[in-house]
Design a protein around this nucleic acid. Structure first.
Lengths: 201, 201
DNA sequence: TTAAAAAATTTACATACTGTAAAGTAATGT
DNA sequence: ACATTACTTTACAGTATGTAAATTTTTTAA
C-alpha cells in the first residue's frame, strides 16, 4: 500500500496537472494548487522545493501516464530501417498529443527557469537519441540519401519531429493527426532516404 | 527633431530590449528597466499600459530595426515561382537571426498574456500570408507537386519556415546559416514542387 | 495499546513584483 | 514668460513565492 506521503504527492501532481494545463504556469499559484489538492500551501513545499520543481515533476508524472498502444509498441522490432522510421513517426503521432500541453508549458517556462530548461533539454536529448538510432540503422542498410551524414539527418528529422511542428500543423492549423503523420512520413522518406532502384517504398 | 516623449520612449525600449533578451520576460522587472533607461518606474507606465504591452512594443521596435540586405530585397521581383520560393527561404535565413531572440520571448510569454498571444498570432499570420502568395504562384505556374492543395502546402512550408526550425537546427544544433537555408530550400523543392521533365532546378 | 516518528497544518514573516494614484517638479515649445 | 507636457516622488493596494517554527494529526511499530 502507498504511504500517505506518496498519496499526497499524487494529489498535488494531479491538481497541478489539471490547473496548469488549464491556465498556464503563471496563471495558477501555489495557493490554488494546494486548495485544489486539499492540502495546505506549505505541504507543497514539503514535497517540492519550488514551483519550478513542481512543474518539472508534473511533466515527469505526465510522461509516465502516457499510453502507447500495443500496435505501435510491437512495431518497434521491425525488419528494415525504413519500417522503423515509419513506426517512429507513427509513435510520434500517438505520443505528441498526450504530452503537448505539458511540454509546451515546460518549454515556455524554460527561459526564466533553470529547472525547466534542464527538463526540456533532457527531453530533447532523449528524443534525439531515439531518432539517431533509426538513422544509424538507415545508414547501415545503405539507405541514407546522398549528401547526408548521420548527424545531419538526425538533426533534421529531430527538428521536424518536434513539439512545434505538431503545434503548427495540428494545433494551429487543425490538421488531422493522420494527415500530419502521413505527410511527415512521406517527406522524411523523400528527403533523407535513398531511393531503391525500381521500387516504391 | 524628436520630442522628449519620443526620446524617453526609445530609451525605455532600448533598455527593455537589452535586458529582456539577456534574462527573459520574468527575469527582469519594470524597476530595473526603468533604472537602466535612466527614468523612474512610473515613466514606464506613462508610455506603456503594462509590462506585457512594453514587451509587444519592444518586439515591434525590434522588427523595425531589422536589416534586410539589398540583394535579398531585389530578388523579390523574380521571374518564376521557384525563384520566389528560393529568395523567400533566403530572406528567412537573413531575417530570422535578427528577430529570434525577441520572438522567442514573445512566444514564451504568450501563454500567460493576451497581448503577447495577439502579437504572436499577428506575426504568424503575416508570415503565412507571404508564404501563401508564393505557393499560389507556384500553383498558377503548374509547379505545385501532386497531392498538395495550396492551403496544405502553405501550412507545411509555413511550419518549416518557423522560428522553431531555426531554433532547433541553428541555435540548438549549431548549423551554419548557409547549410540551414540550403537544406530547407532543397527539401521544400523536393516535397512541394513538381519536377519539370528532364530539368534539374 | 501506546509511544515514537512522520506528515501535514497553522500562523507569521520577508521579499519581490505589478499596477494605481496624486501631488509636486522640471523641461519644452511658442 | 508662461502654459503645457513630461517626468518624479511618495505612497499604497494587491498578489506571488518562499522561509520558519511551533503545533496538531496521522501513521507505524514495539
Amino acid at each position: 500500500m502507498s504511504s500517505k506521503r506518496q498519496r499526497t504527492r499524487l494529489k498535488i501532481l494531479d491538481s497541478a496537472l489539471r490547473l496548469l494545463v488549464e491556465r498556464g504556469y503563471h496563471g495558477v499559484g501555489m495557493e490554488e494548487v494546494a486548495r485544489d489538492a486539499g492540502v495546505s500551501r506549505q505541504a507543497l513545499y514539503l514535497h517540492f522545493q519550488s514551483k519550478a520543481e513542481l512543474l518539472v515533476a508534473m511533466a515527469q508524472y505526465n510522461d509516465e501516464k502516457i499510453n502507447v498502444p500495443e500496435f505501435v509498441r510491437l512495431k518497434q522490432e521491425t525488419n528494415t530501417a525504413l519500417e522503423a522510421l515509419d513506426s517512429g513517426v507513427q509513435a510520434y503521432g500517438v505520443i505528441e498529443p498526450q504530452i503537448y500541453e505539458v511540454a509546451s508549458i515546460v518549454y515556455s517556462a524554460r527561459r526564466s527557469d533553470e529547472a525547466a530548461e534542464a527538463a526540456w533539454q533532457d527531453r530533447l536529448a532523449f528524443r534525439r537519441g531515439n531518432i539517431r538510432r533509426v538513422i544509424e540503422r538507415l545508414d547501415l542498410e545503405g539507405r541514407l540519401a546522398e549528401g547526408w551524414t548521420v548527424d545531419e539527418a538526425t538533426d533534421f528529422a529531430w527538428a521536424l519531429l518536434s513539439m512545434h511542428t505538431y503545434e503548427h500543423l495540428v494545433v494551429e492549423r487543425g490538421w488531422p493527426i493522420e494527415q500530419f503523420v502521413g505527410r511527415l512520413s512521406l517527406m522524411l522518406k523523400k528527403v533523407i532516404v535513398a531511393p531503391r532502384e525500381g521500387v516504391n517504398d
